[in-house]
Design a protein around this nucleic acid. Structure first.
Lengths: 159, 159
DNA sequence: CAATTTTAATTCGATCTCGAACTTGATAAT
DNA sequence: ATTATCAAGTTCGAGATCGAATTAAAATTG
């Protein structure tokens, strides 16, 4: 029986750790499988991070700096540099100097990049349709708020 | 207005893709952040996959084959080979020949491996406690079934 | 009981990840 | 104004990821 003077419902510490590990484990596996699913569907070698950046630029607008993008995906700057280099080498984005800040630059998607994104979406389409038939979309939708909250908590809490 | 002759609520295809991408995006970021959180807490270089394997061996028993482990984590065999090599080089696991199958081998955790796992859990403890204070554990718990179902669907659906 | 096919694991190589150090440009402090 | 500090991006290097090819040991087949 809980003692009313307990400051907090004193979670059993072992159990708490287990909950987090289990959660992160599930998430790691899903991440794994979803990346593999996506990349297997792409005939050329567009990686999942590359696609994510293209998609972000289309959906939320381009003209962002690399640092903006790194923050949006919570990835280290060096990783974003690498992803952008891959996209630029393929001509899917181009970078222009920042008009007022000489250290920075702005990332713009090219027409070819837009087309590539469309093609990528079309290529995973059948796989997603297959998944969609096995899953209740509403159930997925219900997962999103909890995940977003968790993501924000983790983000707010990092050093 | 929906036409009653529509065979199925005809999910708007664009929207369906967006839902999946958003979901996988959140999951990718959480995976990212949780790995960084864990690894930053470890003073030596125990990686998150290495820890996961140690944890698995303690919780579900050792004496598994590398392939068993690869399947449990849905990772390619080659990745598991690499993770196990790292653990063995540190003396945290040891492998013994499979008694009846000459191709295989069995992974056993060492005393040092058990101790290392305990230490790793202790080292993330403060971070998890901080997170725990910002989150409702029950809300996390509620996420698990949906994630597990998603994981199973992805798993069942891969080629 | 050979020949074939499967299966467990490793090796290899190309690519990705990311912390740390560095370069260069902006901002602040005195 | 000069100097110190800070911020954006790149480079570098060590390690991780993972598909494909390889090796060796079952299991299967005819």
């Amino acid at each position: 029986m809980p003692d009313a003077t307990d400051p907090v419902p004193t979670a059993p510490p072992e159990t708490l750790g287990r909950l987090w590990f289990e959660l992160f484990n599930e998430i790691g596996i899903i991440n794994q499988l979803s990346r593999a699913l996506f990349e297997a569907s792409q005939s050329d070698g567009l990686s999942q991070p590359q696609f994510s950046v293209l998609n972000h630029l289309v959906r939320l607008g381009d003209g962002k700096s690399p640092l903006d993008l790194a923050r949006a995906f919570q990835t280290p700057k060096a990783s974003m540099t690498n992803t952008l280099a891959g996209l630029e080498a393929r001509g899917l984005i181009e970078t222009r100097p920042h008009p007022s800040d000489g250290r920075s630059k702005l990332v713009h998607i090219t027409d070819s990049g837009r087309a590539r994104r469309e093609a990528a979406i079309a290529a995973v389409g059948p796989d997603l349709a297959r998944l969609g038939a096995l899953t209740d979309p509403a159930a997925l939708e219900r997962l999103l708020p909890g995940l977003a909250a968790l993501r924000r908590t983790l983000d707010a809490n990092r050093r």
